[in-house]
């Protein structure tokens, strides 16, 4: 039970990364390797605003989201848009470049010092099912729920949201129907930046410190969740996130096999492998 509660919290944050990966994949058939790292670099903006300039946490959070959206938009405009007809592997290499850039900037500017952020909500918390869930963790659950519902409503009930979905289904037909391809692409990458920033903001209290590459596990968890969900389904990404979070917590709590070192990593990989080979379209995805 304890594992399930903890797993739901961790998994909901994976779901945000998974949603970003899924959004970009749907729109451009590319895996964004920088999905977690954009938010990691942006988190230094939160530190700058809250610790250095003593502003409230929410201001710092908005600063981080702003920086991440700006990175996403800039990357799309300068790097991605000229690559419309490039092979998808090449575009993926460009996102590896973005990942390296984020890490390189972190190392150049912030290496050697430990940065500690204040938690979003310092006190409070409720015990459920014998598990203490802190206010920050409640905040995480709430934010993820709001983001999930908001994103779903936006994509289903606004003209632009429908255009995004149509463009993902069939870019050529969508363009012939008058959807603005450039703006859709910009939206996708900007939104992926925002999701990255929010995910990192929410998981930071669990990790405790801010350091280059501190959130690498977030990307692996998010990617696993996206794959379990089927890579093309946003609801799938959220369900996948929760499942992966719970599975990871259960494995951590119950199974240790000494003969196989790093068993948890292996278990996670085996899950992905099984999903890919037995049901490549994931739980909620459609066959390409």
């Amino acid at each position: 039970m304890q594992a399930i509660v903890l797993g739901l919290i961790g998994g909901s944050i994976y779901a945000l990364i998974a949603a970003g990966i899924t959004l970009v994949y749907k729109a451009s058939r590319v895996l964004n390797f920088a999905q977690a790292e954009v938010g990691t670099l942006s988190l230094y903006a939160t530190w700058w605003v809250t610790v250095k300039h003593h502003q409230p946490w929410i201001v710092g959070a908005l600063a981080s989201i702003g920086v991440a959206v700006a990175i996403g938009l800039l990357f799309e405009r300068v790097i991605i848009r000229p690559m419309l007809s490039a092979s998808r592997v090449t575009v993926a290499v460009a996102t590896i470049g973005l990942f390296s850039l984020m890490v390189a900037i972190e190392l150049a500017l912030f290496a050697g010092t430990i940065y500690i952020l204040p938690p979003p909500i310092a006190h409070g918390g409720v015990k459920i099912a014998g598990v203490f869930v802190s206010s920050s963790q409640w905040l995480a659950l709430g934010v993820v729920a709001v983001v999930a519902v908001g994103l779903a409503l936006f994509l289903r009930f606004t003209d632009f949201g429908l255009a995004v979905q149509a463009s993902a289904d069939d870019p050529v037909a969508a363009q012939l129907m008058g959807t603005p391809r450039g703006r859709i692409s910009a939206f996708t990458w900007g939104m992926s930046g925002a999701l990255s920033a929010v995910a990192v903001l929410l998981i930071e209290p669990t990790v405790g410190v801010l350091a280059p590459g501190a959130f690498a596990g977030l990307f692996i968890g998010g990617l696993t969740a996206a794959l379990v969900g089927g890579l093309t389904s946003l609801p799938g990404a959220f369900v996948g996130g929760l499942l992966v979070g719970i599975a990871e917590a259960e494995v951590k709590a119950h199974i240790t096999i000494n003969a196989i070192p790093s068993f948890q990593t292996t278990a996670m990989l085996v899950i992905v492998l099984a999903v890919l080979l037995l049901r490549p379209q994931g739980l909620l995805g459609r066959r390409a």
Partner: peptide, 17 residues
């Protein structure tokens, strides 16, 4: 350290152009 930043930018621009 900044050489690596330049390297990453160079990589992105190379594959993009």
């Amino acid at each position: 350290a900044w050489a690596y930043v330049l390297g990453a930018v160079g990589l992105m621009l190379t594959v993009s152009r």
